[in-house]
């Protein structure tokens, strides 16, 4: 029932409601028709993980930190003879880097933990498969995902300074 409100006449709220719906009707709907219109996703969207193979040192941190063990890494050691060096150096060579996206829960810990910036989020999300086994993306496919990695968004002018900046400032102050 229409109860008198604090200030106003009875039924004021009803009229206000009619006004709101009418206003919404004449203003443009924000819907993007997805299959026809690709969504504009923000740069930090967690769509798929890309691998920049050249940065990977096979440190295995990502595979060990992964909460559901969905990263598979195999590697072997190669001896690199550097002319003029006292002894031959050893180097890890990546044989296999797979991420099983049927297990992945998109927590992003692997990306956080990678010390060499070899893993990146890309916003691409359209990689559904008919067979669950095809969700295991090998390193070739993970490398292709790198194409979708957007440039990092500019730093928020009102935000805290980045870790690098603050440590640099601290070191500068200490000196």
């Amino acid at each position: 029932m229409t109860t008198p409100e604090k200030n106003g006449f009875p039924g004021k709220g009803l009229i206000k409601g009619l006004g709101i719906t009418l206003k919404t009707m004449v203003s443009r709907a924000g819907t993007q028709q997805y299959p026809d219109v690709e969504p504009e996703l923000p740069a930090r969207s967690r769509g798929v993980i890309g691998l920049m193979e050249s940065n990977c040192t096979v440190c295995m941190l990502c595979a060990r930190e992964c909460p559901d063990w969905c990263i598979y890494i195999d590697s072997h050691k190669e001896t690199v003879e550097v002319p003029g060096a006292a002894r031959a150096r050893q180097r890890n060579v990546l044989d296999r880097f797979d991420i099983d996206f049927s297990l992945c829960m998109y927590c992003g810990i692997c990306i956080e933990v990678c010390p060499f910036d070899a893993l990146f989020w890309a916003p691409d999300f359209a990689y559904a498969e008919g067979d669950i086994r095809n969700l295991l993306h090998d390193r070739g496919r993970l490398g292709e995902h790198m194409a979708g990695v957007p440039a990092p968004p500019p730093h928020d002018p009102n935000g805290e300074p980045s870790k690098e900046e603050s440590t640099a400032a601290k070191k500068g102050g200490a000196r």
């Binding site: 919404t24 009707m25 709907a29 819907t31």
Partner: peptide, 13 residues
């Protein structure tokens, strides 16, 4: 259509 647009949607398209 009217209900959709009043709710900020497009309705059947």
């Amino acid at each position: 259509k009217v209900m959709a647009h009043m709710q900020g949607r497009l309705g059947p398209m």
